[in-house]
Write a protein that binds this DNA or RNA. Sequence first.
DNA 1: GGGTATTTGTCCGTATGTATT
DNA 2: AAATACATACGGACAAATACC
Lengths: 265, 265
Amino acid sequence: MANPMYRQIAEDLRAQIEGGDLEPGQQLRTEIELRDHYGASRNTIRDATKLLAAWGMVETRPGQGTFVVRKIEPYVTTLTGSPKVPILYGEVDDSAAGATGSERILYSTDPQVEIQKAGASVGKLLEIAEGSQVISRHQKRAIDGTPWSMQTSFYPMGFILKGADRLIQADDIAIGTMKYLEQTLGLKQVGYRDWITVRTADGTEASFFNLPPDGRVSVFEVFRTAYDQTGTPMRLTVTVYPTDRNEFIVNVGDVPDDGAGVVPA
Amino acid sequence: MANPMYRQIAEDLRAQIEGGDLEPGQQLRTEIELRDHYGASRNTIRDATKLLAAWGMVETRPGQGTFVVRKIEPYVTTLTGSPKVPILYGEVDDSAAGATGSERILYSTDPQVEIQKAGASVGKLLEIAEGSQVISRHQKRAIDGTPWSMQTSFYPMGFILKGADRLIQADDIAIGTMKYLEQTLGLKQVGYRDWITVRTADGTEASFFNLPPDGRVSVFEVFRTAYDQTGTPMRLTVTVYPTDRNEFIVNVGDVPDDGAGVVPA
DNA sequence: GGGTATTTGTCCGTATGTATT
DNA sequence: AAATACATACGGACAAATACC
């Protein structure tokens, strides 16, 4: 057995997909048909399609069939700079997919505000004691109806006592929380540090992002620590992005403008 | 069947691992023992351990058993700034693992130089015609014996004709290729753009990085386009990093020094 | 080196459950 | 309700990798 049969079958199907014989969205032959075609058992065919699914090339739908995955058009976030996509607030509604032409609109839920105790990561990055209280503001975001990111911002509890009480209200701060903190507390953001990791999605994330339950699609977890003029962390924002639909850009020094076309299609 | 049995078994084992009953590196009971313990068939046990493997919690070794994975201590790369780890050149040697104390030494192979035709990505990012010739310099890197990254730099073919002929020699350019290009061609790097994506590893990558063959561990693919003083791309560097042992930092504006401790352990 | 025991990997056939059309 | 297609679960047989004697 140079290569096991299920792997050979998977490679054969992969070649068909990459060669264009099977187009994105198209249905593969059923397991029974493939079993007869390759002269293998149905379980072996299933091992092959499982491998293809692990490679992210097909997805299986009970009662329907096995389909070649359509690549999701990635959304590119520039970490060095301000976001340029307009943000609309309100409920994230998955059913409103395939909306208006080619414009991409970012929807965001209203913030869900909680008082929590700082875990290890939050304490370390905000430079406060683990277990001390923090304000957390959580939002879910979608682009054109596709769930895109889950974001949680953490602020030290002291900000409330010092007068920034809008932080614990569950609505959006239209002028931006950074400007609000500057007006109320005199804290000005002078820089931030992003720490980028990748891990497997947990159950909540897999559910919100409609990820396959086999743990195949992982997520970016980006920790953004914002620093004030004294070099003290004033906010920690943790954002989770599925890796199958998100990419990042970092610009350093003097580079040509971003624009359509910096990234190959 | 609220939850399928193999999933319940997987959750039970997961709880044991997260609860500390099973420690990293420790061997699980054999499939036969687990079969008797849970009153399931061996195939069902195998489905459960496959799920745990997809979650990245265990790994199976033929002829040995199933083991709780040890988390690899991640190596953090700062994208905005110069690398600080000393680079030693020579052969990457997997067998020299577990070396000298806590210092981390980055080994790099000598460059493997080829003349290639630019693919779609390379052409687009270097702003040259797809199919035109480019110089590629490929290196593999390891830290403390663990394979860490695969890097390929692409330069326009014209650089050779204009006098930068050391680019096609298969040895390291000690002063750095950027300084070399400045001395020979007068091209000075004024900035760069990093484009960060995540995808599943291909066969070559899975082999070099010792990744499990099930497609679970994905890789970062970072495209760094360097621009000269005229705003023209002068180099494209594509680096592939396994996501299970690599993290990235991006600093923007005025932030406190990097150092041990910016990242939670 | 060879032989054996142990453990996971591959492959088969079958039966039944669940989701979708 | 019926048909279709994938999902779960079982039991068995043999292969391949590893460790140990």
